[in-house]
Design a protein around this nucleic acid. Structure first.
Lengths: 144, 144
DNA sequence: AGTTTTCTGAAAGTCATTTTCAATTTCACT
DNA sequence: AGTGAAATTGAAAATGACTTTCAGAAAACT
């Protein structure tokens, strides 16, 4: 089942409706390579769909996060970003605080240790956030 | 050098001034055990210092974060929290999404792996954020 | 097709955070 | 100790991301 079908399915199960706006937003979102804020995606969408409002984009992104198609990211700059969940490929982020570049990484050994930690505290993990902030090679070289 | 001296030093270096408000806020903040939002700390302070305004608390917390006495925490609920940096004892957080309980943990093996990841990407880490969200034992038992 | 329910977009409302501004306080230098 | 430039303060207003409201429009069940 692809993600469009998955979304339709989710809508149906929740008694929600499939609308052209939701489909347009999902479709554009899935084509994204970067980490969109509501604002970003809203602006991108305006080119092809000038009638779609900001609130609808926002509401749809929340729906996508609810049904697992998107993850919400919070890098501490006061803006929530969304990124498509890549099937069975969880990853975390390295963020360059100079140029804003975002690098994705995944490290199963870290995931394992997380699980250990959670067990030690009788905790059941539902999700996590792991972000490394610093400087990428380019910025480190420039700001020397 | 204790943290009060450290703060004074920082203020001086930045051409800022040492005021009774800043000292009161720092002093109260250092006594805190939990993770205060600006609002939390402002309310606590009102007991002894009813004249200190919200904006001053907020501005001072930002200063404390700047000079490394406090760390900003963002648990994604739209409120920034601050916690005193404990000397040579970095830790991360387990957050119960049912009751809001916050458990601290530290796991040097995770820190090591982080460094490895950063090296692989030619990245220099300045700080990081690692949070595990889920249910604590108590909430898991209750919501059964 | 009709009816019920949900959606939508624009505008207004929230809420944490940030800025403004006039009055006050600090501090370097007499 | 006194002076004056510069920073600080608190209250209120502004900002900005996010959320809600509401009346008209669109979807989906019968």
């Amino acid at each position: 089942m692809d993600r469009i079908a998955l979304f339709n399915d989710y809508l149906h199960r929740q008694g929600l409706k499939n609308t052209s706006q939701r489909m347009a937003i999902l479709e554009r979102f899935l084509r994204s390579k970067s980490h969109y804020s509501t604002e970003d995606l809203y602006l991108k969408l305006r080119k092809d769909h000038p009638k779609i409002g900001y609130a609808t984009v926002h509401r749809t992104l929340k729906l996508l996060a609810e049904c697992g198609i998107a993850v919400e990211l919070n890098f501490g700059d006061g803006q929530t970003r969304y990124e498509p969940v890549k099937a069975d490929q969880h990853h975390d982020h390295l963020i360059c605080t100079s140029c804003g570049k975002i690098i994705e990484f995944s490290e199963p050994r870290i995931e394992n240790l997380q699980e250990q930690v959670a067990r030690q505290h009788d905790f059941i993990i539902h999700s996590h956030r792991h972000e490394l902030y610093g400087q990428c090679a380019k910025c480190a070289a420039e700001n020397r």
